[in-house]
């Protein structure tokens, strides 16, 4: 366990590093590289400030967050369910294997035009795109997790008179949850990719639109400001997944706090 003093010092050093980077950026901009390409922190701050003052920044954040979070939740839920079902029913998994691999190797973003044809350019399209991207990552992880459940543990459970349902709830799901969370964590940035790309392709709102709009007006500061907001949204989604992980897997934190012995 790291001591409180140590962690405070680490955080102070991180802040100092951030300030140093921002200062270098601020002073190098327009001297080493043209300001048009890299903008400068003060200009980015002003752009953010004016969006905040204009009041529609939160509107755009809300739209993108809605798309990313809903898509993430939908894709992850369906991914877990399908992963568990195929992980337990081997015949079905063997049957579907080539089809799944074929779909998996398709870049999901390339499906965007198809989704536009099907459901238009509204929020539904971005949610569908996000859900598709997240689904595959979570599904494959869950499937692997369910397949990796210890056969010995299952046998011990059957000897205790466990039914298929008991084995599922007491062994398979808790055992696979580590893998599910691994899938969820790598899915977070991809959820944002789905939402933002959807907005870049066709939209008049959301952070992707803000980004494309600023770029279209050669407003470099605006582009950077939009990127920072996207980063913060991703950070938030990540923190939510992390919090759920700690809450749902208390034994993991117990394991990490253990003294290492050989």
């Amino acid at each position: 366990m790291r001591k409180a003093g140590q962690s405070l010092r680490l955080n102070l050093m991180r802040c100092a590093l951030l300030v140093a980077i921002l200062l270098t950026w601020e002073m190098a901009s327009g001297v080493v590289v043209a300001e048009f390409f890299v903008s400068k922190p003060s200009a980015i701050g002003r752009a953010l400030g004016s969006w905040l003052a204009g009041g529609n920044l939160f509107f755009h954040i809300g739209i993108t967050a809605l798309e990313a979070f809903t898509g993430f939740f939908l894709g992850a839920s369906i991914g877990v369910v399908v992963g568990v079902v195929l992980g337990r029913i081997h015949i079905l998994a063997d049957l579907l294997h080539p089809f799944i691999i074929a779909f998996y190797s398709l870049p999901k973003i390339a499906l965007a035009p198809l989704f536009i044809l099907w459901i238009g350019i509204g929020i539904g399209m971005k949610i569908t795109l996000t859900a598709t991207v997240v689904f595959f990552l979570v599904f494959l992880n869950t499937y692997t997790g369910v397949r990796n459940v210890s056969r010995e543990l299952e046998s011990i459970m059957y000897l205790m008179g466990a039914s298929e349902r008991h084995v599922l709830t007491k062994v398979v799901l808790p055992s696979a949850i580590t893998w599910v969370f691994a899938g969820l964590r790598i899915s977070v940035p991809y959820a944002l990719i789905g939402a933002i790309v959807g907005e870049l392709i066709a939209s008049n709102r959301g952070l992707g639109f803000l980004l494309a709009n600023a770029s279209g007006q050669f407003d470099t500061a605006g582009v950077f400001a939009a990127l920072i907001v996207i980063m913060m949204l991703s950070f938030l989604l990540n923190a939510l997944v992390r919090a759920a992980e700690i809450r749902l897997m208390p034994w993991k934190s117990a394991e990490s706090q253990r003294e290492v012995t050989i």
Partner: peptide
């Protein structure tokens, strides 16, 4: 068995009561 085959996600009480839950 030689291996204890406990459920890592359950504490001592949780592990002991698995068969009782099944019953």
């Amino acid at each position: 068995t030689q291996n204890d085959h406990l459920l890592p996600w359950r504490d001592v009480v949780g592990n002991i009561q698995v068969p009782l839950e099944i019953q």
